[in-house]
């Protein structure tokens, strides 16, 4: 390797003389890179200074963090009664994720059709739907949870509604994109054999978007399981309530146990849903 390297390096001046265009540095591109990188680093330093990052504090924190990590071992729920409590809360978390995802999926169907350019030709309606969806999407799930707690009270129901609210927009957007990119030919075929507008949608478009949509639902369910684990932090049910409580009262072993529970559950759900999605999207049937 190194012998080759040396011979090649020895040839470099000759090569540079023969192919000057290749070896000439591209100053403009370099300047661009330096400007972009320099800007990013400058902003980084500015942020560090503005947010008052103190090396002593960071060091102290890291030391305390290692202590905490030590105190987390071994993770334990401290007795069966509490483990049962956690298990119920975990079930509740899954229920919240499932319910929120399906509610969002159901409600997003009409919205998706409204936001699709090839279904609704009215440009104003189309624009308004899109903007409304964007504004709903820009609010985080936890904020929605707080709002819904004011409406239906503390508990998992508020959590499910919060997940629904924050997902509706994303679902509708995906759905409208799937509809817009759907193949026109089946629709025209149904029309040519005398199908009505509704029949064109049912037999021309729905079969095309159904597998895409189903796999998206599963994907969202995966990510919502993660969101549902934290929604309890603000009191909207699920395992997050216990997690934040155990951390606040510095019961590190229990907190670690809860985190492990979440990790394992999420890993299982990811695996199952990945299989299902692969089965749905790919693999010609039969």
């Amino acid at each position: 390797m190194s012998a080759l390297r040396e011979t090649l390096l020895a040839q470099k001046p000759g090569m540079a003389a023969r192919y000057p265009d290749v070896f000439r540095p591209n100053l403009r591109a370099r300047l661009n890179v330096v400007l972009v990188l320099g800007g990013a680093v400058a902003l980084y330093v500015y942020a560090l200074v503005t947010l008052d990052f103190d090396p002593h504090r960071i060091l102290g924190g890291v030391l305390r963090l290692t202590d905490i990590a030590e105190m987390m071992l071994p993770p334990t729920p401290d007795g069966w009664a509490r483990a049962e409590l956690y298990g119920v809360a975990l079930g509740q978390t899954l229920a919240i994720a499932l319910l929120g995802t399906s509610l969002a999926a159901i409600l997003a169907v009409p919205l998706g059709f409204l936001a699709a350019r090839n279904i609704v030709a009215n440009r104003v309606l189309h624009f308004l739907t899109r903007r409304a969806l964007d504004s709903v999407r820009s609010i985080d799930t936890l904020i929605w949870a707080l709002i819904w707690i004011n409406v239906v009270g503390l508990g998992p129901f508020a959590g499910a509604l919060a997940i629904m609210s924050s997902d509706i927009a994303a679902f509708a957007k995906l759905m409208s994109e799937a509809i817009e990119t759907a193949d026109r030919k089946p629709v025209e075929g149904v029309q040519a054999s005398g199908g009505s507008r509704l029949e064109r949608i049912r037999f021309g478009i729905v079969p095309q978007i159904l597998p895409i949509f189903a796999s998206q639902i599963l994907y969202f369910f995966e990510s919502n399981t993660r969101s549902a684990t934290i929604i309890g932090i603000v009191g909207a049910g699920g395992i997050g309530l216990y997690l934040s409580e155990e951390i606040r009262v510095l019961e590190w072993q229990r907190a670690a146990f809860l985190i492990v529970m979440v990790l394992v559950t999420v890993a299982i759900i990811d695996q199952v849903s990945q299989r299902l999605r692969a089965a749905m999207m790919g693999a010609p049937r039969g």
Partner: peptide
Amino acid sequence: EICRTVPDIVFALIFVVAFGLGPLP
């Protein structure tokens, strides 16, 4: 995997204890 499965707000909860309140955690 561990980094992305644990939600950021859970890390934040733990870090608030270790580093104190503020933007750092």
